[in-house]
Design a protein around this nucleic acid. Structure first.
Lengths: 313, 313
DNA sequence: TATACCGTGTATTATTCTTTCATGATTGAT
DNA sequence: ATCAATCATGAAAGAATAATACACGGTATA
């Protein structure tokens, strides 16, 4: 589904080229050929009477004029989002499609109830769920392939000031330590992350959101983890823990299978280690009735899943 | 020259239908056939998932959703104007075309120097001047056939709150009374408009800006003029005055031929009778470098033409 | 009651956009 | 140094879209 009401699609093309850095990548994201993208930009440049691209090596580079255009395009798109939100809110029986995406845990525990609630509330709506890592979530939003994204901040995500997106803290998901049974940390009444500084750690593959999560949490606790193994799935990590290969950090929302001989240890600290889950839309899309509905559902779902949900700032 | 960068032309179509009230009139303004306009709106409605038009008699009426769309469209267009202004300001040698329009006196005395100055400053620019009555000035702006309009407020002009336009006072043009030579008012040292309440008046055709001007000035002075004759041109009116058919009110900027045996009497009063000349652009277009340049020139021109220019509020 | 006006639908024509394929240029690897 | 891979762009063909001509049904005005 191509996204773009009211606005010249050529602006979206320019935005994609800026986002992905090359004409070819932008073309792939838009399901176009590079030639089409090149032509669109040429025409847009002619209409505006300015140069938008300049050759740079075998790729291209945006001109200052292009960045000016993009800055205004962000405002335009935000306004279109607001318009669509207002229209949707005024329609008796909203139709169309609505897509939420989120990283693994969110997609597992938070999104299905929200999607179900949307389906009940809007019978004519086609609701979709996409599991996607944070960095891909932004791509989906930008392309219009998703309307709401649940994600965590990683080093690759755009800054909160990015005028294309509206990123807001939704909830803080506390982090638990998973250690083998009879581990010395399991016996203590109060454990902080720093207490595990000297353990062997099992973390996600470099570049993954999970990798980033553990690293930043440990850094906040004042140490760099001693990484022994890499595992992206909670189950894999848990199995490794059970076999005494190290310890892992898991968010409270992530449920582990019971069969493993491991202990889940709650962490203390000020603030308690947690991953912040952000609810992100395209800028202007926050007022969209379905976004609001989905966020409501997610918040209540999280409240039942997390005994004492920690309200985000 | 079709105007519309970055924005779906269908929004302009909707705007025109709203402005002119009928599909046919909007089509004429856009140089389209009514059928094309009808199709565009149908498609826009489908894209947005809302109804935009409803039959009303043999014409149409906009739905609430259409008005919502238009409200947002106004914001979009203003943002596009700002974008274009910023781009123009960043280009070394701006090209393209720029059109100023104004009512008769403005087109005669104010616009030509401004256009000449623009031509000198922007050699690659195609500068055009259009003489147009106020109500048509708004049409020209809306259609993109003009970028700056000098006009006076009449009963038919949109309110200053109209989010499609940026209307600002440019200067106040004092109103003089033209009476036959040896007329008793010509001998007095201080004449107010109210002193002429019982005279016979020559005014513009009903509906013209001049008609509106005289009526509102007299109303402000506390009387309704006794209209004896109608004349749209200053010369015609002056000739009638010379032959003792009545008196006329002329703006200071309007120069009269010398041959007529008439006297031009300056009016006193608090405030002194004047017509307020507005400089109007599309909303967001005020920052356009050529608009700014033109307004600068017009202001200095007016300062030389009007001995003591009265700065607008 | 007749006529002119308005909006819309259908089919055809015109225009615009998109792709295919080929080319020149640059980077990185062997 | 050379070869292969990657990237952007151009010309021509094809597909998709938009605009028109024309006809029709409904509504106000004479």
């Amino acid at each position: 589904m191509y996204y773009s009401f009211m606005i010249d699609p050529k602006l979206r093309v320019l935005q994609m080229v800026a986002h992905y850095g090359t004409v070819t990548a932008a073309a792939a994201a838009l399901h176009y050929t590079p030639s089409a993208v090149s032509h669109q930009l040429r025409q847009l440049a002619a209409e505006l009477g300015v140069d938008l691209l300049s050759q740079y090596g075998r790729g291209i580079r945006l001109t200052a004029a292009a960045r000016t255009v993009l800055r205004h395009a962000d405002v335009l798109y935000a306004q279109v989002e607001r318009a669509e939100a207002e229209l949707m809110a005024s329609v008796d029986e909203p139709a169309g499609s609505f897509t939420v995406c989120g990283f693994s845990t969110a997609a597992t525990h938070l999104l299905p109830p929200a999607a179900a609630s949307l389906r009940d509330r809007y019978p004519h709506l086609s609701v979709r769920v996409i599991e996607a890592e944070p960095s891909r979530g932004f791509d989906l939003l930008l392309a219009g392939d998703a309307d709401l994204a649940l994600l965590t901040a990683t080093g690759q995500t755009p800054p909160s000031s990015d005028q294309r997106f509206d990123q807001r803290p939704l909830l803080d998901d506390p982090l638990d330590l998973v250690v083998p049974e009879q581990h010395h940390l399991a016996a203590r009444s109060r454990v902080t992350l720093a207490d595990a500084a000297d353990e062997s750690w099992i973390v996600g593959r470099p570049g993954s959101a999970y990798h980033h999560l553990v690293l930043t949490a440990c850094q906040a606790a004042g140490f760099t983890p001693n990484i022994a193994h890499y595992a992206d799935e909670w189950d894999t990590g848990t199995a490794l823990v059970a076999h005494h290969f190290g310890i892992i950090l898991v968010p409270r929302l992530a449920r582990l299978h019971e069969e493993w001989p491991v202990e889940r240890v709650r962490l203390s600290g000020e603030p308690a280690p947690a991953r912040r889950i952000l609810a992100t839309t395209r800028l202007g899309g926050r007022e969209h009735p379905m976004v609001a509905h989905a966020l409501d559902t997610i918040t209540t779902t999280a409240a039942t899943l997390l005994p004492q949900p920690q309200p985000a700032e």
